[in-house]
Amino acid sequence: MIAIVDYGMGNLHSVEKAFAHLGAPSFITDRADEIERAGHVVLPGVGAFGDACDRLREKGLTEILARRAGDGRPFLGICLGMQLLFAGSEEAPGVPGLGLFPGVFQKFPETVGKVPHMGWNSLTYDPDCPLFADLPGTEMYFVHSFALFERTHAVAETDYGGVFYPAAGRGRLYGVQFHPEKSGRAGLALLRNFARWEGTPC
């Protein structure tokens, strides 16, 4: 089963509906024991980085998520959920993220054009990354103002007035800045790839 983490930030139901459409059973939870047991975990989220960290702490989920994300079983952070996997964000200076990856998210400079970066944009991705196997398209739907500009753990890049990294990770742990659950067939294919991964550490 895929556990979708509920910490009061954003529309979890669209992720759940996308998995249901793919025939992959998922459930929404805010319980540490259920997150621990679930074969797959999805950390979604829309909103502010600082608020999200506060909510995770209030719900007592910070430690379990950091541990679970690092234990080799499938874990996917979406949008704000990707940002939470990193050390932090300029949006909330000094507030630590889950720290699975180094790097701090930064706001798009105003010179790129309109912020938030909203709409469909294309990815150039690492063809060996299992997240992107057999995608029927490269455009994904984005809505965000902060982005990853450090290449170290990136598996894809996107151009919005300059390059940023819309997906990062390793093994069975990834974060994506776009919304696969709202990215039509390409996004559903990505979620299907994730759902098909074995739940055992690799």
Binding site: P136, G137, T138, E139, A186, L188, R192
Partner: peptide, 11 residues
């Protein structure tokens, strides 16, 4: 513009 993609195969 976003290119139109083919129908995906369900799980």
């Amino acid at each position: 513009i976003r290119r139109i993609t083919h129908r995906h195969t369900p799980m």
